[in-house]
Nucleic acid binder design. Structure first.
Lengths: 131, 131
DNA sequence: CAGTATCCCCCCGGATACTG
DNA sequence: CAGTATCCGGGGGGATACTG
């Protein structure tokens, strides 16, 4: 799948307009691959969670960032937010069908990294020696 | 695959220690999912590229960030750097076998986003209406 | 060509305090 | 409980100039 340095617009689109600055895909990509976004998506694969539950799962996230990231993902149609007007408040977050597809791919990447981490450190070391 | 709020250490590890702050996996994840990291990995799937070629492909990246991100990925054992001591300098970047595996997963995610983007905008709109 | 060095701005993101 | 509002520091990252 070789492309020339000066690829046509059609080629760029086929290969993904992710390479074009300011395109909407980059925005979604930012949300999904943000450090908290990754963890939230993976955490929600286990099922519906409340705000505080999510906060415990995603170790180290501040209320501010959790709230903000959830809004991004909700806006992208990946996370569903259901708020029950009771006291004390009760809000549930879950993945939409679309969100499950995204989370699956994110989890795939994350799991791969964890599996391969030892190999990565080893080969990086090897490269340093050979060089 | 349900887990309790107070999962055991073993469960956490099985589910991924990515949830533990300060673990090495998070570091690699940061490099791979960084906005430039994503684009570099995908660009290198087409084959070996020189510094300036890479800079053109990855539209909008500064020399500084390109250099830095490449070092990260090289340090992780995902990218192979080959410098030929000639004038003018000639340096080639390519994916290691490990890097190809990573790039595949990143590309998978990116392609999915691009395919589903229209659906995402639509469902996000739908959610807003229903709510 | 392939970078490094330097400067500097912006904004991500944490901490804290407050509210419905 | 589930957030918002405000403040603020660190560092991600751009622009420019310089070098081997």
């Amino acid at each position: 799948m070789k492309t020339h340095p000066h690829a046509t617009l059609a080629e760029k689109l086929r290969r993904g307009d992710l390479f074009a600055p300011g395109c909407p895909s980059r925005e979604v990509m930012k949300h999904v691959t943000s450090s908290w976004g990754v963890l939230i998506l993976i955490a929600l694969r286990d099922g519906t969670l409340r705000f505080s539950e999510l906060r415990q799962r995603v170790n180290g996230v501040s209320e501010r960032m959790l709230s903000q990231t959830l809004k991004w993902l909700e806006g992208d149609g990946l996370v569903l937010r259901r708020a029950y007007p009771v006291v004390p408040p009760h809000t549930e977050y879950s993945l939409t069908p679309l969100g499950e597809e995204a989370a699956e791919r994110v989890a795939n990447l994350a799991e791969w990294i964890e599996e391969r981490l030892p190999a990565m450190l080893a080969t990086a070391e090897q490269d340093r020696i050979e060089a």
